[in-house]
Write a protein that binds this DNA or RNA. Structure first.
Length: 667
DNA sequence: GCCCCATCACCTGT
DNA sequence: CACAGGTGATGGGG
């Protein structure tokens, strides 16, 4: 039956009649598949991707929806799988939900299903309470998100996941372990209603921007970008008046297949099924035109927009995979190939819709810069740190003719005029080799209230008034995992010229939330000198005693209730003042600009040198940061400014961060 | 029609 | 490499 396509690895030119090959009934010609009468929004208001529903007549317009975001356009779709969780629980929240007049129903009735509940006893429990209000998500926002809500959900997810990892790692290999913290965190959040964009849609997803990166498939699920937790194809089922239709809305390209195309705007995607590499004992079979394949096939005819997420190996951590949202594509071609195992395999050619900001293409050009083939445009200096960092810090200006920042000496850490004697002198831990999470004999861990502050791959678990790291007086090896902020830069950085804010800092690598970025290096000065420095025009003062906007980064303790761990103090009070000037001496941190919605935050870290405790300011990623994104943190307000109220105090600068939550000025 | 459960596939992750 | 594992689709029974 596969005579005609046995030897081809080239897409045939004409359209194939798959119905012949696969014994599938032919496609019917499509009529508009949802009712236009009742709720059609005014013309022109469709989100991108809807017009193609008009089979042949509608003009192929440009992807208008691509650049707009957050515009919660009403979608005239009725999805089969309605977001029942939302509908139900929202009415529950009103406290008036037509309570079961139908006597029985609902779970908890311990009637005849007891037999099945023997093997899975946990199922019979009451559903967990809706906790979405805790983190500030309304029922409507669960349906349709926004940038802010997406950030809230992702932060809640990762905070919980980090904490679960921490608990898991502390337990060594003993009792009931929390394997797969990624799954557990997702499950917890979903059952508590902490998620967004539950309404499946074609085209852009509100709150998700092209270039956004993710570190787990579950992150794609909870923000409504791609629903299946493993499957590569997300399909939407639409009920029309006479027919039902299924369309592909999103795909994840894992990069494990031969998806690669030379052109970064093209992707060749393999259909699903056929067991062609999973079951080894089974002979590989032809893929069938069903499920995801069927959806892709229909989409290739409807020409609807399909979101594309590209999975790729993390250069820093080859075990990890990073998912990059690469925007909207359309399926241009499809054909059948013969796989090595012998089965027929569907192939789909997706082409990126032009006019979208680049995402995956940026990754590709970074790869090229790193290999050095076309040199970086605007490169002024290959390594601003002059070897002081283990990793080069390039200096780049693609904007104007300014050749260099004002002179300063690059230094990787702090210079103390005197020892920092606020804390009682203490001795380092006596661990051999490395400190082990959960080992309460380790004095450093005890100082961290029994928690190892970092996960195994060096990610900060939660903010604290003070993180205690191991230091030179500890017995443990220098590669102990509790020395994260002492190990210098881990990502190749770039000091670059911004359009309107002088120099800025960004990374060539993606940075995962909670990753240590750098410390604020410079000279420590006494508190009394601050005003003098400011008067002298020192723009490089870091002062822990300023007023900082509070924000929540740690996990929500109520989400951990069933594990019995509900300690979480996100205490924002700064225990010890520390003032640093990086005017004459400093590192990359002095180039980080202010933003009112930053992607980096600072955390006090302490460790010992020569039996004296020294305080450092360490910067961590607030959320996942795509490569080439400017790194920013909140500069806070000088105390004197705060006392004067909101009147424009002297020395304040107009803020150009461009955030929707911009406070207007800083400094 | 609905609800509940079981089963299955899936471009996971450790 | 093995295997635990979540989600959503599917299908059957009550």
């Amino acid at each position: 039956m596969e005579e005609g396509l046995g030897q081809n690895s080239v897409p045939p030119h004409g359209p194939i009649d798959k119905s012949k090959i696969l014994d599938i009934k032919p496609l019917r010609s499509l009529i508009p598949i949802y009712s236009m009468s009742s709720q059609a929004p005014p013309a022109g208001q469709y989100p991108s991707g809807f017009s193609p529903f008009f089979p042949f007549g509608a003009p192929q317009q440009t992807p208008t929806g691509v650049t707009t975001r957050g515009a919660a356009t009403p979608a005239p779709l009725r999805a089969y799988k309605n977001p029942l969780g939302a509908g139900d629980s929202s009415s529950t929240m009103n406290g008036f939900n037509g309570q079961d007049t139908s006597g029985k129903k609902k779970r908890g009735s311990p009637s005849r299903h007891t037999k099945s509940s023997v093997n899975k006893p946990k199922k019979s429990q009451e559903p967990p309470a809706d906790l979405s209000g805790l983190v500030g998500i309304s029922p409507a926002q669960r349906e349709d998100g926004s940038r802010e809500v997406v950030n809230i959900v992702l932060m809640a997810y990762d905070a919980l996941r980090r904490r679960l990892c921490q608990l898991e790692e502390a337990k060594e290999l003993s009792s009931g372990s929390i394997k797969r913290a990624d799954l557990k965190a997702c499950n917890t959040l979903m059952t508590r209603g902490i998620r967004t964009n539950m309404r499946k849609r074609i085209g852009a997803v509100p709150g998700i921007e092209i270039g956004d990166i993710f570190y787990f498939r579950m992150e794609l699920c909870i923000v409504g970008l791609h629903a299946p937790s493993m499957g590569g194809i997300d399909a939407l089922h639409i009920r029309g008046e006479f027919e039902e239709e299924t369309l592909a809305v999103c795909i994840v390209s894992s990069g494990e297949y031969d998806d690669d195309a030379e052109d970064s705007d093209v992707i060749i995607y393999t259909g699903q099924g056929g067991n062609f590499f999973m079951n080894k004992d089974k002979h590989t079979t032809d893929q069938k035109l069903q499920r995801g394949n069927l959806a892709l096939d229909r989409s290739s005819r409807q020409h609807n927009e399909v979101r594309v997420i590209r999975g790729m190996r993390d250069g820093v951590n080859p075990n990890n995979k990073i998912y990059v949202y690469d925007g909207l594509y359309k399926i241009q071609d499809s054909w059948i190939e013969k796989a090595k195992g012998g089965g027929g395999v569907f192939k789909y050619k997706l082409v990126r819709i032009p006019g979208q900001s680049s995402a995956f293409a940026v990754w590709k050009s970074i790869q090229k810069w790193k290999s050095g083939s076309p040199s970086r445009t605007g490169l002024i200096l290959a390594d601003l740190s002059n070897g002081a960092e283990g990793i080069p810090v390039s200096l780049v200006n693609e904007v104007n003719n300014v050749k260099a920042p004002t002179f300063f000496n690059y230094f990787h850490s702090l210079r103390h005029p005197k020892s920092f004697s606020l804390m009682q002198p203490s001795h380092g831990c006596t661990c051999i080799k490395a400190c082990v999470p959960g080992d309460l004999n380790c004095s450093c861990i005890r100082r961290n209230e029994g928690d190892f502050p970092y996960t195994g791959n060096g990610i900060l678990v939660s903010r604290k008034p003070l993180v205690h790291e191991c230091g030179p007086t500890c017995q443990c090896f220098p590669n102990c995992k509790n020395r994260v902020s002492q190990t210098g830069l881990k990502h190749p950085m770039e000091v670059f010229r911004t359009k309107d804010r002088g120099w800025g800092l960004r990374s060539l690598d993606p940075i995962r939330a909670g990753t240590f970025i750098c410390e604020y290096a410079g000279e420590v000065v006494g508190r009394g000198k601050v005003s003098q420095l400011v008067k002298e025009g020192d723009e490089y003062v870091f002062d822990t005693t300023r007023i900082y906007d509070q924000f929540k980064w740690n996990y929500e303790p109520r989400l951990l209730e069933e594990i019995g761990s509900n300690d979480s103090t996100e205490d924002y009070a700064m225990p010890y003042p520390l003032i640093i000037t990086a005017k004459n001496i400093g590192n990359v941190a002095r180039f980080m600009n202010h933003s009112c919605s930053p992607n980096v935050f600072w955390q006090p870290v302490v460790y010992e040198e020569n039996n004296q405790s020294y305080l450092h300011v360490a910067f961590f990623a607030l959320r996942h940061i795509p490569p080439m994104t400017e790194l920013t943190y909140d500069y806070g307000l000088a105390q004197s400014d705060h006392a004067e109220g909101s009147s424009a105090a002297k020395g304040r600068k107009k803020c150009l961060c461009g955030s929707s939550k911009c406070r207007g000025s800083f400094g």
